[in-house]
Design a protein around this nucleic acid. Structure first.
Lengths: 360, 360
DNA sequence: GTGAAAGCGCTAACAA
DNA sequence: TTGTTAGCGCTTTCAC
């Protein structure tokens, strides 16, 4: 850094610190012998720059190891070139996969990714009812299994932050959802097809969840599919066989212990996540029951370890889901039009060794 | 929004867009009847603001739903109030847990989290050899199992971005590491204590990994611990029992199949991750071998599902590791001094049902 | 204790 | 095709 001519008015010393050694547009302009405006245009590949000038500028920029300051750009344009992702838990398998998918396509699109998690209902409420905190930081956000309350939709739309929802429809925003009812039906039909008539459900919806507008809607939908399949097969629904559970393996284990301990225990179990299904397998094992001989178990997700544990399951492509969501968002950002674009996630039954024909 | 008096010089229309409805410092100042400087001071709880003024300002800010624009603040101060995290894969269990830990403490400290993943060697090289891209976006970065090459350390130090390394020491930056040699020794000693003398290793270091400075050092360290334990017990090292493997369950399964298919197969297996150990259990099962009766298996991590699958393992507290790393970073940021602060991660042997005394 | 004003680095009119 | 310049919203001297 040599001294600058600076014929202008007095300069107060720079208040605090731009990182040492960072070069600015002005540095590049000086070296290239053009104005900052030209540098800006040349570097962003805007039209109306002479080829020769552009080459010269790019060379100078490379020389100086120049990188545009994203904050300055955001301040000037209003766009941050970053998107946010919000989800209940980042440590759970499904969420981590979706996150991986999101990250991968976002990185290749040159966007930054800000991660927000909203584990407690209070966190969720705060995040969803207040578009403001993220507004100035990201151009859009991917919501995973999080619901914007109807009365806040307007605020989000007005805020200019683009939204895409995964797991739940949040009109009028684009979304990526799976037909959980149909998928659950498929799981239960598989069991029914094997001759099972007493089928336990692990991961039913919480009894009091209807009041809570932010509540995770997946358990309810899967429970509905479970019931529909039973009803269609002429099997009476037994509420004693439907147990709510948080989506963790320990909960699946506890629920399975309870169900298998019943006087008239189920011969098959449908767990609404593979983690819970694996917990259920552990419960069966500790009760001395063989899977699938004594009890058939089917899960949901196709967790990484489902195949390793030979678990029959309903597969949903978690990583791809993340990618689809980002593509929807990028499209929205590019066209700047919000339309109820939608991806319907495919699912499939994967029959493995944890389910078999009823033997008693 | 009523019309503004605006007695000043002509204003060109705002170039592009600040989000509609967002209020600025100036808005707050106008409503509170003070200057923007005072608002700024009041809102940041700086000294030299009359109590009464502060109250008035805060009320106005609340009224207007004011949020400071992070880009503007970053531009003015040089601090972004964001930190970055970089890791090889976000979808793998261990990384997702560390991420969860990082996210949790960062959120409570009011920082934003930017996620970078570097899956390919090329991505890693790019990220690690170029401090510039992140310099203006984050105040610090948490590196998970990623190594800054020695010749780049200077650039990182000079860049002003604070660094903390998890999994590998990267002097002179603070780090959070586990003594992988000792932990592996503990695992193998457990097996030896049970009478095993032919012990397979799944997840040894890649033969050609020494050349690659960015290479993941964990497998090598665990292999060393494995060998030390054997040697100390007077057991000869058999290279045929040491198989390198990527840290995925399928690889563990393949490696176990190979080891158990040997003419003189091992009676116990040490997999350097639980995913691989679970794969090994699947391999044993498909070969008709009972765990632990025919073969004992011990893993590493204490994966969420290790307990569900009754896997003996070496536990490392992944979520806490993330939290510790962030605390180191926040401390560095607060004191603005880089010192080789360090956390030595505790580990423990968790004996479960997948290991037992040698029976043949 | 408070205000005026100069930037931070960039983009986008607008003029040339 | 290029340069000049007025901001973007905030922080921080410096003067009052």
């Amino acid at each position: 850094m040599s001294e600058t001519p600076d014929p202008g008015p007095v300069r107060t010393p720079r208040p605090s610190g731009r990182p040492p050694g960072a070069s600015t547009l002005e540095d590049v302009a000086r070296v290239a012998g053009v104005s900052v405006a030209t540098v800006s245009r040349a570097l962003r590949n805007l039209p109306n720059v002479a080829v020769e000038t552009r080459t010269k500028v790019k060379a100078a920029a490379a020389d100086l190891n120049y990188r545009a300051d994203p904050s300055a750009a955001r301040l000037a344009t209003g766009r941050s070139n970053a998107i946010g992702i919000a989800m209940p838990f980042v440590g759970q398998w499904y969420f981590a996969q979706v996150l991986a998918g999101v990250e991968a396509v976002l990185a290749s699109a040159g966007y930054d990714l800000l991660l927000y998690s909203a584990a407690t209902p209070e966190d969720r409420r705060r995040f969803l009812t207040d578009a403001l905190p993220v507004r100035q930081r990201v151009d859009g956000v991917v919501l995973i299994d999080l619901i914007v309350p109807p009365e806040e939709i307007g605020a989000w739309s007005a805020s200019g932050v683009r939204l895409v929802s995964v797991g739940q429809r949040v009109d009028p925003f684009p979304s990526v959802t799976l037909d959980n009812e149909a998928a659950a039906r498929l799981a239960v039909e598989h069991l029914i097809g094997l001759g099972h008539r007493r089928i336990g459900l692990i991961g039913a919806s919480e009894p009091d969840s209807d009041d809570d507008p932010f509540h995770f809607k997946v358990p309810g939908a899967r429970q509905q599919g479970y019931r529909d399949a039973l009803t269609a097969a002429g099997i009476r629904i037994d509420p004693a066989l439907e147990l709510p559970a948080p989506f963790e393996w320990e909960a699946g284990q506890r629920a399975a212990e309870q169900l298998l301990g019943l006087d008239d225990p189920p011969t098959a179990l449908f767990a609404t996540s593979d983690e819970m299904a694996i917990g259920a397998m552990a419960a069966a094992r500790s009760l001395g029951l063989a899977v699938p001989h004594d009890v058939s178990i089917i899960g949901f997700d196709d967790h990484d370890l489902a195949r390793a544990t030979d678990l029959t399951t309903i597969r949903q492509p978690a990583v791809e889901i993340g990618g689809w969501a980002v593509n929807l968002l990028l499209k929205e950002l590019a066209t700047d039009v919000v339309e109820p674009d939608h991806v319907d996630v495919p699912f499939e039954l994967l029959v493995r060794g944890s389910t078999t024909a009823r033997s008693r």
